[in-house]
Simulated scan of single mutants.
Amino acid sequence: MAATIVSVINQKGGTGKTTTTINLGSALQKLGKRVLLIDLDPQANLSYSLGLTEPERTLADVFTGQHSLPDILQECDGLQVAPGSNELVDVEISLVGQESREQFLQSMLQETKGFDYILIDCPPSLSLLTVNALTASHEVIIPLQMEVLTLQGLGQILNTVKQIKSTLNPALKVKGIVVVMYDKRRKLSLEIEEYLQDNVEERIFKQRIRLNVKLAEAPSFGKSVLDYDSASNGAKDYLGLAKEYLAAK
């Protein structure tokens, strides 16, 4: 059975996108799924957070045809990872003049076998790399902070998904919105949560990802929070999210 390909997307930086990609992936792996993480962000935060600080081969080498995707994969605590690098900036520039430039990642992913889920950490912008990810994906997950400006960004993301669905990938769907960095003591969090429930048609996962210091510490040790401290609230929340994700239709 082919892997389910999931883009984790938010067009604003610092929204928990990389944290969600890593820890949802790790939680799915703990639940017995075979998971591949794709670091499509030129900042390569996902790679760094998993201890891949100077990978010999990266995703940029696959885009330029120097290596196949299976050639660059590295194992991190049971996860397979396709490392990113700053060279993806140059890759994106070179893609602009290419024919079928939106389908490059889709073709690359067809080379991979043996995975249940492929999670793509997208750049924090509507770039050509992001369009590649959305064109290749079956589903989108949107991490969302409980901040006023993120609501504006959510509308932009949903419009982007709608555009990709109508032009490049009719099968694309929003799997759900993940509330991250959640603090129920803040009145604003509760107000925005209520607004989402009343105004957003897409699924909002019931599992909240609470503010948790262990989530912030884990990347310093090159681990997911589940491998860094399995008893932490961060680990419990992402495991709960993975279970809810698997149960969602």
Score class of each variant (00 low, 15 high):
M1C: 07
A3M: 12
T4A: 13
T4W: 14
T4I: 11
V6W: 02
V6T: 08
S7K: 15
V8T: 10
G13W: 11
T15Y: 00
K17S: 07
K17T: 12
T18P: 09
T19S: 11
T20H: 06
I22T: 02
S26R: 05
L31K: 12
L31Q: 12
G32Q: 12
G32C: 15
G32F: 15
K33F: 13
V35E: 02
V35N: 04
L36T: 00
L37V: 08
L37T: 02
I38N: 05
I38E: 00
D39Y: 05
D39V: 07
D41V: 07
P42A: 10
Q43H: 13
N45V: 10
G51V: 00
P55G: 08
R57N: 08
D61T: 00
F63I: 06
L69F: 01
D71R: 05
L73R: 00
E75C: 08
C76Q: 03
D77T: 08
L79W: 01
L79H: 02
Q80W: 04
A82H: 02
P83G: 02
P83Q: 05
G84S: 06
E87V: 06
E87N: 15
D90H: 11
D90W: 13
D90L: 15
D90R: 15
I93Q: 14
L95C: 00
V96H: 05
G97R: 11
G97P: 00
S100I: 03
S100V: 01
E102K: 01
S107E: 12
M108D: 04
Q110T: 09
Q110G: 15
K113F: 11
K113C: 01
G114N: 10
G114Q: 03
D116C: 07
D116Q: 03
Y117E: 04
I118T: 08
I118W: 03
S125F: 04
S125W: 01
L126P: 06
L126D: 09
L126C: 14
A136V: 11
A136M: 05
A136P: 09
S137Q: 06
E139W: 11
I142D: 14
P143N: 06
L144M: 15
Q145A: 14
V148H: 07
V148P: 05
V148K: 11
T150Y: 11
L154C: 11
Q156H: 14
N159Q: 14
K162L: 12
I164M: 11
S166N: 12
T167E: 08
T167S: 08
T167G: 09
L168T: 08
L168V: 01
P170T: 08
A171W: 00
L172K: 06
K173C: 04
I177E: 10
I177G: 02
I177M: 07
Y182D: 07
R186G: 10
R186Y: 03
K187H: 15
L188N: 10
L196S: 09
Q197G: 12
D198W: 03
E201Q: 15
F205H: 11
R208T: 02
I209Q: 05
R210N: 09
L211A: 13
N212Q: 01
K214H: 05
L215P: 13
A218W: 01
F221M: 10
G222W: 11
G222K: 06
G222V: 09
K223I: 02
V225Y: 00
D229A: 01
S232D: 09
S232E: 05
N233F: 14
A235Y: 13
A235K: 14
L239D: 10
A242V: 08
K243T: 07
K243P: 04
E244M: 04
Y245F: 13
A247V: 00
